[in-house]
């Protein structure tokens, strides 16, 4: 039974991937891509990686899908999509790589170091009970710090590009009128989404969840609000910037301030590690949500500049 389910999942993934590549219509490609993301999330569940499944569903399928749909909206106005002709070489490369991967994974040597065991041993000192949160926010928190920087840079680049385009085009959001059904629905849904985001964040310390997943859910709520024409982005730009950078700012400040007590960079005081992590995660959730939303929000409106 499980084998049948897994093979269906695998075949479904392949079919969706093929659909993304070969459909003539870009819209259909994007829908296939979103379906691919959802199936991939299911695959992660089957592989017993619920954290990845949450992230994949929220970011891979959800937000990326919204961004891609938005991008199509802009492309439509300009030129017809021409289906790609050079797919043979990439396809052959992919097949060859897949075969090599299968062969090499079959002959995989037994790892001499077992990191999961080390993580389990050190878990009591980490301040949290969920091993993945412990790795992300404590054992390898330096990676996470830099990942947040990557997200922040993405938002900064989007802002810079948006400023560049602002001179030639402006969103046509002014003209659209609010859809009463969507607006009513969204205004009731928004608090629930916020609640779920906070719950996922809180749950992260003892079960799958955490800042990234919570942030992605928060961003989804903001996107929905924006689509329903609630203009939450119309706050002072400097305030928005502070919101985007707040997570990174707090993380860096905590990471650095512990050095004053003579501890190495990013070492939480052991007795308070749990509180420190929860605090950092809370601001990170807020900033990640804003950053992901701003990537959507920064994309130009319905009119793109005509470059001559």
């Amino acid at each position: 039974m499980q084998f049948a389910f897994d093979s269906m999942l695998g075949l479904g993934l392949l079919a969706c991937a093929a659909g993304v590549f070969w459909s003539r219509d870009l819209f259909r490609s994007v829908v296939m891509f979103i379906a691919f993301g959802l199936l991939l999330a299911l695959t992660w569940v089957r592989l017993e990686a619920p954290d990845l499944a949450l992230a994949e569903a929220a970011i891979g399928a959800g937000l990326t899908g919204v961004l891609l749909l938005d991008a199509i909206g802009h492309l439509r106005q300009h030129k017809e999509h021409s289906p790609r002709n050079h797919w043979l070489l990439p396809l052959l490369c992919c097949i060859a790589l897949a075969l090599l991967l299968i062969l090499s994974l079959n002959a995989r040597p037994e790892a001499s170091i077992s990191l999961p065991e080390l993580v389990a041993e050190s878990l009591p000192e980490s301040g949290v009970e969920h091993p993945i949160t412990a790795v992300l926010l404590n054992f390898r928190s330096y990676d996470t710090l830099l990942e947040i920087a990557v997200l922040l840079v993405a938002a900064v680049v989007a802002m810079a590009l948006n400023d560049g385009l602002a001179a030639t085009a402006r969103t046509s959001a002014e003209q659209s009128s609010r859809d009463p059904v969507l607006a009513g629905f969204t205004s009731r849904l928004a608090p629930v989404i916020l609640l779920i985001a906070v719950y996922v964040l809180w749950a992260g310390s003892y079960m799958p969840g955490g800042a990234f997943q919570g942030g992605a859910i928060l961003a989804a709520g903001l996107v929905l609000l924006k689509l329903a024409d609630f203009h939450i982005e119309r706050y002072a730009e400097s305030l928005l910037r502070l919101g985007l950078a707040l997570g990174f700012l707090v993380f860096l400040a905590v990471a650095t301030s512990v050095m004053i007590g003579g501890r190495p960079f990013l070492t939480y005081p052991e007795a308070f590690a749990g509180q420190f992590i929860l605090f950092i995660e809370a601001v990170l959730t807020f900033s990640i949500g804003l950053i992901l939303f701003s990537l959507f929000n920064q994309s130009p409106g319905q009119e793109v500049p005509h470059d001559n």
Partner: peptide, 21 residues
């Protein structure tokens, strides 16, 4: 960690290339 560093370098560098818009 090198991978994360590479990502940060790349994204910042791409952003700087597109600065002029």
């Amino acid at each position: 960690n090198l991978y994360v560093g590479l990502e940060l370098v790349t994204l910042a560098a791409v952003g700087m290339v597109t600065l002029s818009g």
